[in-house]
Simulated assay, not measured.
Amino acid sequence: MLLRHWRQRAEAVGRLMPSRKDMHPEELPVDLPSVLLVDVLTGSPRYRYRLVGTREVEARGFNPTGHAVETHFYGAPLATVLRLYDTVVARRAPLHMEYPIPVRRFAAALEHANLYLPLSRDGEAVDMIMVYSDYSSVIDYR
């Protein structure tokens, strides 16, 4: 549903991808606690967490808002995380990825899926990525 909404917003503004301003929180067809906004920067660090939903903060056990992805990532190895963001920026297109991640408050991992949606002020260059995290069943490793 979120992907469909993103496509409709892009079409409504007549661009390849919508901007952050085009994605109104009250209209998003998902739980906002599961949404992250990641700034795309020039130079190093390349990515910074602008907003991290409360469900994501709870799963991580810390709030990375305002910090570089390179130093405050969670779940997949850093190289994988950066490759996912780099792919979204290069392709200027949504990306869906599924993988298990550890949850610090459990001796377990969760099946985890992320939807990465590029956002752009000018409709050409990706300057922000909206990420929707969907945690489903717990995998018990005890």
Rank of each mutant, 00 (worst) to 15 (best):
Y135E: 08
S133A: 09
A79H: 12
W6L: 02
R142K: 15
Y85E: 00
R9Y: 00
A79G: 14
E27Y: 05
H24L: 09
H67S: 14
V81F: 02
D22N: 05
V38S: 02
S136Y: 07
Y47Q: 08
V88R: 01
E27Q: 13
E56V: 10
A93P: 00
Q8N: 10
P18C: 09
H5D: 15
R121N: 13
I139F: 12
G43P: 08
Y99K: 07
A59G: 07
A107P: 06
T54W: 00
E111K: 14
L119Y: 00
S136M: 05
Y49E: 00
L78C: 15
Y47N: 12
D122W: 07
V40R: 05
L41N: 14
R4K: 13
E124C: 15
H96V: 11
V138Y: 12
P77K: 08
V52A: 04
M23K: 10
V89C: 12
R4G: 06
L37Y: 12
P77C: 10
A108E: 03
V103H: 06
W6R: 00
L37D: 10
E58A: 11
L95Y: 00
A10Y: 10
H67M: 14
G75K: 04
Y135W: 04
I101Q: 08
E11W: 01
M97L: 01
E70F: 07
V52R: 00
E58Y: 01
A113E: 07
Y116I: 06
V40N: 13
H112I: 00
M1V: 15
